[in-house]
């Protein structure tokens, strides 16, 4: 494997291995140690509550745009009332979890990387270690737990707002029949769609927290190092979410088909 040393492939594989090791360390810590409720609640507040505005705006406008686009196509074949069904399935399955995760990655992933990165360059992480505190226990576990708990809840919020906004635009702006629209949406949007969305949100929550923490903990010295870690946390989280989404969709669809 010497030929990989120093190359970008080697660096990429090393980074992947380190994130995997961080995930294992965090899971072990999560299973064996008592989590500080105070730290966890603060992180849930920071990741969940403080992301409300971003998630509401994203969900609302995505639902409205999707509704209008679907209506334009369905109207050509006189199937206006199918609009909300398309919005429902799309929001639950794909757009709700993915767009929520991308927005949270931008806000929270960057903040996690910047905070932990600054702690690293100002020797605060070394100080933690000298005070007999494992940085993973104190910094990673509360963020990982909060992120995996908050993302599904934020996704539910995004889906609800998206469908609600699409309903309002469809019914009051485009003149779609409200009863048939609602009926069709409930008919074609199954519980399984929502479950898929929540599973994805859970996974994306873990990705955002792990990559943010890893980038912060491994950032190089100086203001430039923190800046780079922050940018990389957002870029890598977003790319990983999009790639994971494809494979997760394939796996979940396969599992659902086998189950049926």
């Amino acid at each position: 494997m010497k030929f990989l040393a120093g190359s970008w492939v080697g660096d990429w594989l090393t980074g992947l291995g380190r994130i995997a090791a961080l995930a294992v360390e965090a899971t072990v810590s999560l299973l064996t140690l008592k989590v500080s409720w105070r730290d966890l609640l603060y992180q849930i507040y920071f990741i969940g509550i403080k992301s409300q505005s971003v998630v509401i705006i994203t969900g609302g406008f995505t639902g409205m745009v999707l509704g209008v686009s679907a209506y334009i196509q369905f109207h050509k074949i006189k199937m206006d009332t199918a609009t909300l069904a398309v919005v429902g399935v799309s929001m639950c399955d794909e757009l709700g979890p993915v767009l929520t995760a991308l927005m949270v990655a931008g806000r929270v992933g960057a903040a996690i990387a910047a905070e932990i990165g600054t702690m690293r360059v100002t020797e605060q992480i070394d100080a933690l270690r000298t005070l007999a505190t494992h940085p993973v226990d104190y910094l990673v576990v509360p963020r990982l737990l909060a992120s995996t708990l908050a993302l599904p809840l934020l996704t539910i919020e995004s889906i609800t707002i998206g469908i609600g906004a699409s309903y309002l635009v469809g019914v009051y702006l485009l003149g779609i029949d409200p009863v048939y629209s609602w009926y069709n949406m409930l008919k074609y949007t199954g519980n399984i769609d929502l479950i898929f969305g929540l599973i994805k949100a859970f996974v994306y929550g873990g990705i955002i927290a792990l990559i943010g923490c890893y980038k912060g903990m491994s950032c190089s010295v100086g203001a430039q190092g923190v800046g780079r870690a922050t940018t990389e946390a957002v870029v890598y989280s977003s790319i990983t979410i999009l790639i994971t989404n494809f494979f997760l969709t394939l796996i979940l669809q396969r599992v659902a088909t086998m189950g049926l």
Partner: peptide
């Protein structure tokens, strides 16, 4: 490893050059 070191580090206190206070 880092976990085994926690026990050893309980014997230590360290004052950093920049104090390294949790801001």
């Amino acid at each position: 490893n880092e976990r085994q070191l926690l026990r050893i580090r309980e014997k230590f206190g360290m004052v950093f050059q920049g104090a390294a206070l949790f801001d």
